[in-house]
Simulated scan of single mutants.
Amino acid sequence: MNIIKEIILNAKHLFGWKTNRKIIVFSVDDYGNVRLNSKEARLNLDKMEMKIYSRFDLYDTLETKEDLTQLFAILESVKDKKGRHPVFTTFSMTSNIDFEKMQKDDYTCFYNETLPETFEKLSKQQPEAYAGAWDLFREGIVKGLLKPQFHGREHLNLIVFNDKLQKRDKQLLCALKNKSYTSISDEEYPNMSSMAAFDFWDFIENKAFIPIIQEGLDLFEKIYGYKSTYFTPPVNNIHHSLFKTLTEKGIRFIDLAMIRKEHQGLNVFKKSFNYLGKKEKDGLIVMVRNVVFEPTEDRGINWVDFTMKQIETAFRWNKPAIISSHRVNFCGHIDENNRNIGLMALKNLLDEIIKKWPDVEFISADELGECINKTKSLN
């Protein structure tokens, strides 16, 4: 590792909450989201020359029963000093596109459905993959292997979506006809991602996001039986004017980038610096992920070694290791080899963690937030 990377790796730990405990948190994004429907859908998109922008366009599907079965086996194979298994804080969506309803309406209007409805449909359409998947997911929660928190209502930007729908965009219609929302270009929308739910061009567009957040959090409580207290915005973008709505609905902790460029509208940006435990004016406590683990992303590195180095640095500075990852690393519905690579790396990482730090503690992201809120041991 060159000296510049070494400086950056250490610098992000200079500020914020500290602890002598060796805490490991897995913050894993995108659960509950339908991006790619099936192998057949991907083949159809390929035939239509729909561009593959990333591994998400290739492999990211709603978690299958086999995805969860194999993930749980890995998580249950390891225990910390208190006898607790690693827990995935699954940042989850509460709704998806209702592809069938949109088809009946000739794709003239956006319709959505709740996550349990999505699982129910897919268990009938693709029983070999999805029959029993939702029950297994909930079983994982009961076992303490999963702890869902809020990631948004849908993992898509409705401004981009509705504009493309109105224009009868061929790319969008092709994806929707294949019950997918992937390989979508957003080049014509400055500073907006088709996947970022809270991206905007004109600041006033943020007003439309308020009921989306409110409905999403109400659905979260209805689906999981408890209120979400922790929020990670899709693609990590959200304007601080929406923080008030989040706190009013029970959110207490929010993931933000250490160096954050917040869009103010009309291509104007404002930079801010964040650190673990920083308190926003609206009362939200900022959480900053400090470790990256993306084993199916080809960066030409050994992901286990790279992640271990990051954890070691965090512990050296008396910081918890908040490991950022994505569901796509553990998806095998399109290609089992993708899941095998991700899970093998996860197993190796967990074994190395226990070996190097036998006094490690595995907790969920919201539990870490509560620890910070109680102790407030900040620089």
Rank of each mutant, 00 (worst) to 15 (best):
A208T: 06
F198H: 06
S228V: 11
D186K: 00
G225T: 10
A196S: 14
K227I: 04
T229D: 15
A208V: 06
Q214Y: 04
G225A: 11
Y230G: 04
I204T: 01
I213A: 13
A196T: 04
I223W: 05
Y224V: 02
V235C: 11
W201A: 09
T232R: 08
Y189N: 04
K222F: 12
I223V: 04
K207I: 05
D199W: 01
P233R: 07
E205W: 05
F231S: 02
P190T: 09
M195I: 12
S185I: 05
A196D: 09
S185W: 06
W201Q: 09
Q214N: 12
E187T: 10
V235S: 09
K222Q: 15
F200A: 00
V235Q: 10
A208G: 09
D202L: 13
P211T: 12
I210H: 00
F231Y: 08
D218M: 15
I212P: 04
P233G: 05
P234H: 04
F198T: 07
A208K: 07
N206R: 11
S193G: 11
Y189L: 07
K227S: 13
P233I: 03
T232I: 15
I204G: 03
I223H: 03
S193T: 02
Q214H: 08
I213Y: 11
A197I: 09
E187L: 11
T232Q: 08
A208N: 08
